[in-house]
Design a protein around this nucleic acid. Sequence first.
DNA 1: CCCATGATTGAGCGATCACTCAACAGTATA
DNA 2: TATACTGTTGAGTGATCGCTCAATCATGGG
Lengths: 218, 218
Amino acid sequence: MGNETGTGTRDLLIETARDLFLLQGYGATGVAEIVRVAGVRPGSLYYFFPTKEDLLIAVLEWYRDNIYEGLLQPVYERIDDPLERVFGILDGYRQMLLLTAYDQGCPIGNLALEVTNSHPRVRELLKENFVQWTDEVARNLTLAAGRLPAEIDIPGLSEYILSVMEGAIMLARTYRTIDPYDNAIAHLRDYVDRMVEDGTNWAKPSRFRHASDGEKTL
Amino acid sequence: MGNETGTGTRDLLIETARDLFLLQGYGATGVAEIVRVAGVRPGSLYYFFPTKEDLLIAVLEWYRDNIYEGLLQPVYERIDDPLERVFGILDGYRQMLLLTAYDQGCPIGNLALEVTNSHPRVRELLKENFVQWTDEVARNLTLAAGRLPAEIDIPGLSEYILSVMEGAIMLARTYRTIDPYDNAIAHLRDYVDRMVEDGTNWAKPSRFRHASDGEKTL
DNA sequence: CCCATGATTGAGCGATCACTCAACAGTATA
DNA sequence: TATACTGTTGAGTGATCGCTCAATCATGGG
């Protein structure tokens, strides 16, 4: 973490690229723009990063290493209840959408669909970020497990929550209104509330009914 | 639709761009590549489309005008039950993920996060495609309304289903495994099943939190 | 002092980017 | 045949792309 040696140019480039990638995407952000905003010359960038993709990797590593300071801590300072902390995290993305007028959503989700077919290391880091997010949600759900059905699949539910959030951000950014996000979180809240209040009646989602599995459904 | 006049070059360019945008994204696909794959010269493209963005607009209009043939009809031929038709549509995306080895997800979702900050007409068409998809799901849910709670917000639930699907595709493409998609659809199936099987006990998701019994929160 | 090392400079590389345009071909109508 | 209109051609535009590199600077140790 603390890069105590050096002049700070490397960190400056990572943070500049991070912000520009978030606003414009990876492909739409040129190296020339990054170095111009950072106030350095192209050679300096390529002294630290062999390619533009290595800079993207460093940005994704930054997100992975700063999830607590940037995402969790502001929520955990306000909220103690583990279940409400999960919805607090979701509310953080809501604030981001509103404050940036839907220009910024989830940094990882933005990049995920854009660079999925690129270098394996990039995909690996996208996955690491998603897994870290999911694990943190799962940790909170485990702390609230007393209120949830015993047979609940906490990792699966956590991943489901991530799916809902990413999809809802996509719709909110496209529509440029918060309604799709609020609608999705409300449904999610209802789903979780049902587990809390009626745990014994909760059916573990397991029956996979894919048409591809053969039988014609009527 | 039936462009009976002309030589077909315009349609050929739209379909070629559609396929390349789906595989590589909008920004990563160059005009030179489109005309090379289509077997025409750059001048022909710019005879029909003033800018590359106008070609993207034509592609989005194509998706809007061909949702039935490309997405719904293959499902509706197999499945009659309106509720199962919804999950049949979702299974179509599952097949796409598997058949393309996670290279192709939802064509609209791919573009949505990439070009959200571009020309208003593009955003408008992305929205039109999402709304059309949601409306079709809502139509099916309405046909199945007899099995659903009377007070259910069908448009809201339809939009929620779209959120879940788009987020699940994002995760499946990043992880390069179908598990996140199956997990999300299973949770969605469970959510809908609960409404069908226990409609009277279903509460409209809005202000339903920690009803009567002891408050543990904070 | 000298030197090694880390860091920076800035001109400039070839390739590709979206895009242009004057010339021309094909076909139908007059 | 003459005119008009729809497409097509392909060389070529300036700008920007990611990236290179020999030269230079700053700094601390021996």
